[in-house]
Simulated assay, not measured.
Amino acid sequence: MKRVLITAGASGIGRAMGHAFEAAGFEVWVADLDAAALGDCPDIWAKHQIDCADEGDVKGLFDQMGQLDVLCANAGIAGPTALIEHVELDAWRQCVSVNLEGAFLAAKYASPLMKSAKKGAITITSSTAGIYGYPNRAPYAAAKWGMIGLMKTLAMELGPFGIRCNAICPGAVEGPRMEGVLNREAAAKGMSRDEVYAGYAAGTSMRSFVEAQDIADMAVFLGSDGARRVSGQVIAVDGHTENPDPKLGPSSGSEAEVPND
């Protein structure tokens, strides 16, 4: 049986990925900082409480694995919503650490397992904020752009070993976590929540948000043999983002905004 590891896998997009991979016949491992959310996951899943931005935690998890066929590096936080001059350095560092360094650490320790098997797939959850700039969200956008650069480099480094690497870029994802983003942006921009929501939706040709299941379905495809020649790609699952409106903000969502994972 193939094995998948999903970081920030206990809720949101990560949890949707877990269910989708389970339905596809995978053995599901999830890592998350939220013990309560992990406890609510299916008993059949292998559940591990770790900080995905802590190298000791990550190494300890991978030391237990032995086999890994698919890695979904999905951990991330939204970071601060503020103009650049009001962003505190500590908040910047935390956002970059969880998003970019979390993906780096997962890939660092997944690579030897996959190299020994001469196969594998790594999928990084970036964002459409990693494709466009994102006013009032500089740390998040910078981290998400960095994750795409990381993925492109991994695809070149690991391709000779039969390992594929891709990035999924969700747009605005329906759910309670996106509501938090909408409310924070509304406060920062002096707008209503509904005005910000309309700006996100208007920024897509399909005039809609996406759902966690849409992201999960793409992750399963990228981890499958059907994508055996797909590598180094940035794939937006966002209803087609058009040029962002700098007043209303781009159609860029968050993937798994958990406090520290």
Results as ranks from 00 to 15, higher is better:
46 A>L: 14
30 V>N: 05
136 N>T: 08
123 T>E: 02
226 G>H: 03
57 D>Y: 09
254 S>Q: 12
91 A>L: 11
50 I>F: 12
238 D>W: 03
48 H>G: 12
139 P>A: 07
183 N>G: 10
134 Y>P: 00
127 S>M: 04
180 G>T: 14
223 G>M: 05
36 A>N: 05
54 D>S: 15
122 I>E: 10
210 V>M: 00
46 A>Q: 15
218 M>S: 12
43 D>P: 06
225 D>N: 07
49 Q>W: 08
18 G>I: 07
124 I>Y: 00
130 G>K: 00
140 Y>S: 13
25 G>P: 07
94 Q>T: 12
169 C>H: 13
71 L>N: 07
71 L>V: 07
174 E>M: 07
216 A>I: 11
102 G>C: 08
15 R>F: 10
42 P>T: 09
79 G>A: 10
125 T>M: 15
198 A>S: 10
136 N>P: 01
63 D>P: 04
90 D>S: 14
2 K>I: 04
53 A>F: 08
130 G>P: 05
73 A>I: 13
249 G>L: 12
145 W>F: 04
26 F>A: 11
167 A>H: 11
208 S>W: 04
39 G>T: 11
160 P>V: 05
172 A>T: 13
71 L>H: 05
24 A>I: 07
77 I>V: 15
225 D>A: 04
246 P>N: 09
225 D>Q: 04
49 Q>P: 06
260 N>L: 15
114 M>D: 09
178 M>L: 05
35 A>T: 09
70 V>P: 03
195 E>N: 05
129 A>F: 02
118 K>Q: 08
60 G>C: 03
16 A>M: 02
102 G>F: 02
50 I>Y: 11
187 A>L: 09
60 G>E: 04
32 D>L: 03
171 G>L: 00
213 Q>P: 06
116 S>A: 14
114 M>E: 10
30 V>R: 03
79 G>L: 09
46 A>T: 15
185 E>T: 14
185 E>K: 12
87 V>M: 06
115 K>M: 12
160 P>L: 05
89 L>Y: 11
7 T>R: 07
211 E>Q: 10
246 P>W: 12
33 L>A: 06
111 S>P: 06
221 F>G: 14
5 L>Y: 15
138 A>T: 10
182 L>C: 02
65 M>R: 14
140 Y>H: 14
185 E>A: 11
178 M>K: 01
172 A>S: 12
206 M>V: 10
203 G>N: 00
80 P>D: 06
40 D>I: 08
143 A>K: 01
80 P>S: 09
151 M>W: 03
186 A>M: 02
207 R>S: 11
124 I>R: 00
237 V>Q: 06
237 V>S: 07
158 L>M: 01
110 A>W: 03
74 N>P: 02
141 A>H: 13
187 A>K: 12
246 P>I: 06
23 A>F: 03
134 Y>D: 00
82 A>M: 08
255 E>A: 10
215 I>H: 08
19 H>E: 04
103 A>Y: 01
229 R>M: 14
107 A>W: 10
16 A>S: 04
43 D>Y: 06
233 Q>L: 14
125 T>C: 15
75 A>F: 03
261 D>A: 02
149 G>I: 08
14 G>C: 04
66 G>W: 00
26 F>Q: 07
50 I>L: 13
123 T>V: 05
230 V>M: 01
123 T>F: 01
57 D>T: 12
205 S>H: 09
